[in-house]
Design a protein around this nucleic acid. Structure first.
Length: 95
DNA sequence: CTCGTGACTTACG
DNA sequence: ACGTAAGCCACGA
């Protein structure tokens, strides 16, 4: 997740796939159980349809949305605007 | 071991 | 667009 640049987001599916696991739900659960909010930009991980999803950190989804918008991500009607444009698929990730 | 549940996803009606 | 079903892996009861 630390490879995700500011203003970009990814989905649980892509994240799990990048990790080489098909356990999308397990990955999502792990992310949620270990809120590295201040350490890791877990708020840049959203659902596949562009919706925020959930957030276990302070303020919940509200904070998650504010963090994203603070990085330049535009969210409209609970969904990310230009989702397919700012979507980070790890293709430009060199790690 | 079987069931239910979960920061999920895709497919079908 | 919305509800349901199924698939997925991990975890706890």
């Amino acid at each position: 997740m630390r490879s995700i640049p500011e203003g970009r987001v990814t989905t649980y599916g892509l994240l799990a796939h990048y990790l080489g696991s098909r356990a999308v739900r397990a990955v999502a659960t792990a992310v949620g159980k270990n809120p590295d909010a201040p350490r890791v930009p877990c708020h840049r991980v959203v659902r596949a349809d562009g919706s925020i999803g959930r957030y276990s950190g302070e303020g919940g989804v509200q904070t998650k949305q504010r963090l994203l918008e603070s990085e330049g991500v535009v969210i409209e009607n609970g969904k990310i605007d230009n989702f397919d444009r700012i979507l980070f698929d790890f293709s430009e990730c060199t790690d």
